[in-house]
Nucleic acid binder design. Structure first.
Lengths: 161, 161
DNA sequence: ATGTGTGCAAAAGCTTTGCAATAAA
DNA sequence: TTTATTGCAAAGCTTTTGCACACAT
């Protein structure tokens, strides 16, 4: 993953982010009246440490690395990811390859999109988004509660040559 | 589907479009050195008559309506849809619900996006697209051969109230 | 004639469900 | 205690694959 190419100061800063992301996730879980079980703790830890979108299998592997015994079952992962998505800890993102992916939802309400390399499958976040303006136009067409999915596909700098 | 609510003059005009779409599809098929078999004929007919994105099952049903015997097999549909997508008769669109959909590709090179009602699943095309500008920015980041997927989700006018 | 395309059956993902056992509050 | 959550096994769906047969060119 591109965003791992970082110097240590950024990495340190990253750790503080992970902590706060973990804490606010636990917060959201408790506010929703859900139980903080061991598998969920491990999963939240894995999620907040993970960079970018991940599949159920991806994060299951991360969980097992964190703790072989409290990683839970893959089925539990599937159920928890759905639950976490319901209470806005996660957001689903779909790259159209038959596998559902999730990503930690930014708690400041902001969002971003991705460029996925069609060759090496590297995922890079895109910070800018020009789509909100279009949502307003669609609202004027009578739609409400709009969301959008936008993903770019192409050859990344390395794969371009 | 929204776009079926049309008057007869538009419908007539629509038929001419279907014809030319069918013919240019056959053209593309032959230019690619592929054979125009009976199942493929039926499928192309169903596709060019169909409005908006469809799944393999969707279009298989349409094929069977057209001709019970030359509708082919569902497996053949899957294989043909992939083939047609390869030679740019169709384009894949993914609404993130675990089912791949295809749509007739506009032969003038233009494209459009969709609003999908999260309640009744109605799909409406969106003619405008603000995303091309962003692709140029991403190209400046070193990417090439860019494409994008953009879908909107929300409550359609009827489901909004 | 020749090689592409088809049909059937079976397999292969990924994801969901049922249910008894378990653990958090 | 009580209800949510888990684990296991099994099922569900969509999509893909293997292979002998059939058909378009």
């Amino acid at each position: 993953m591109k965003s791992n190419n970082r110097n240590s100061s950024v990495a340190r800063c990253h750790h503080r982010d992970q902590d706060s992301a973990f804490k606010s996730s636990v917060e959201l879980l408790k506010n929703a009246g859900l139980k903080l079980t061991l598998p969920r703790q491990t999963l939240l830890q894995a999620i907040t440490q993970h960079d970018g979108p991940f599949s159920a299998e991806d994060i299951f592997a991360s969980c097992k690395k964190l703790s072989r015994k409290s990683a839970g079952d893959l089925v539990t992962i599937y159920r928890s990811l759905a639950t976490f998505s319901d209470i806005s800890i996660l957001t689903r993102c779909d790259f159209g390859d038959g596998t559902v992916r999730y990503e930690l939802l930014e708690q400041d309400g902001s969002h971003h999109h991705h460029v996925i390399c069609t060759s090496c499958k590297t995922v890079e976040p895109i910070s800018f988004c020009v789509v909100e303006g279009q949502e307003q136009i669609i609202e004027q067409m009578g739609y409400s509660r709009l969301t959008h999915k936008l993903e770019f596909f192409g050859l990344c700098p390395s794969c371009s040559d």
